[in-house]
Nucleic acid binder design. Structure first.
Length: 293
RNA sequence: GCAGGGUUAGUGAAGCGGUCAAACACGGCAGACUGUAAAUCUGUUGGCAUUCGCCUUCGUAGGUUCGAAUCCUACACCCUGCA
């Protein structure tokens, strides 16, 4: 897809974890007076800084960041809530005459904004808890009884629950991205991405995720942490319980992060409106060309 | 040196004469996914053909048997007990 010829009103940067999205966003923001909105389902949590590779306080001081630290660990959040938040911020930033830059690896969050998903209503209070007590078979039966569309995969309990919660309603979306949107994708080749993930994992441990995990666990409890925390924290909890040692923890983190990156790749692959670049440098040059016109 | 246990696909680990290309777990690969998404789930995973099927695997080399990952012999390596 050819990039729009006029100056975009929204820049979106997507890609797998550790592909260099933040770096690119920061450079573009600094040069063109942009403000960053993180579309990331983990950096929304307060206190989860090191383990989520959240932009540092210095970076946040250089460029305004939004979408971070929205809720406490253990609290639920959703793609629908993110969409509202992001749209509000995009509006504010635009009105200030600055460039909104939506950056993230959470495909659902990004697409919700970009393709204007209309999310079916949330579950009624307490509904989820009772549905989750049912067996998969019972959930399937419920879906069939009510003639709701069966999720493509009938073994996916979570999707079954959701179909019931939204009373079989299908969400709608726009076929084309929001007008004026430029979507840049970062996709290093496999070997490079693996390397980046591996070295970043080591860095994250060097910076002290273990201590961070301890603090979070003390403040919010292991249960809250397990229910909302991302990849590293779960591994660090095992480390703190002495089930594994540090080297194993790093190894586990690297492979889990790679698996995550692949899921992200699968998600973004089907979006034909993304213009892909192998690294942030090349992407930056391309973006520069477009924004200078 | 003697006695015993072990060596199975990328890794761990079942199998102990036929229904074994070999359970299971992990890892790998492909995919799905609109109010949990760093989540959750599916398929696939020796090679070739991809319909019947064919070929090469279970430490190495021989042997027994209609038939062996499974039994026997020798060798190699690893672990344990006695020396």
């Amino acid at each position: 897809m050819a990039p729009p010829t006029q100056r975009p009103s929204l820049l979106v940067i997507v890609g797998p974890t550790a592909s260099g999205k933040s770096e690119l966003a920061l450079r573009v923001a600094k040069r063109y007076g942009g403000e960053i909105i993180a579309a990331d389902s983990r950096t929304i949590y307060k206190g989860m800084d090191i383990g989520t590779a959240k932009p540092t306080s210095q970076q946040q001081a250089e460029v305004p960041h939004w979408g971070l630290n929205l809720v406490e660990p253990g609290q639920a959040y959703s793609a629908a809530r993110f969409k509202e938040h992001a749209l509000g911020k995009i509006d504010e930033i635009t009105r200030r005459g600055r460039l909104p830059i939506l950056v993230g690896g959470t495909g659902l969050y990004v697409d919700g904004v970009v393709f204007d998903f209309n999310f079916p209503p949330p579950p009624a209070f307490g509904e989820r808890e009772s549905l989750e007590k049912l067996s998969s078979k019972e959930l399937q039966n419920l879906v069939e009884e009510k003639k709701y569309p069966m999720p493509e995969n009938r073994h996916n309990r979570r999707h079954l629950v959701r179909v019931i919660e939204r009373q079989g309603k299908q969400g709608e979306k726009q076929q084309m991205p929001k007008p004026g949107t430029l979507i840049i994708g970062l996709m290093p080749d496999e070997e490079q991405l693996k390397k980046r993930i591996a070295t970043r994992a080591v860095e994250i441990f060097d910076k002290g995720v273990i201590t961070e995990t301890q603090k979070l666990s003390a403040k919010y409890g292991e249960k809250a942490l397990l229910s909302t925390a991302g990849i590293v924290y779960k591994i660090c909890l095992r480390l703190l319980r002495k089930e594994i040692d540090k080297d194993e923890a790093i190894w586990l983190f690297q492979t889990a992060d790679w698996q995550y990156a692949r899921r992200q790749r699968t998600w973004f692959k089907r979006n034909y409106h993304i213009t892909w670049y192998p690294n942030s440098k090349q992407a930056y040059q391309a973006v520069t060309k477009i924004l200078n016109t």
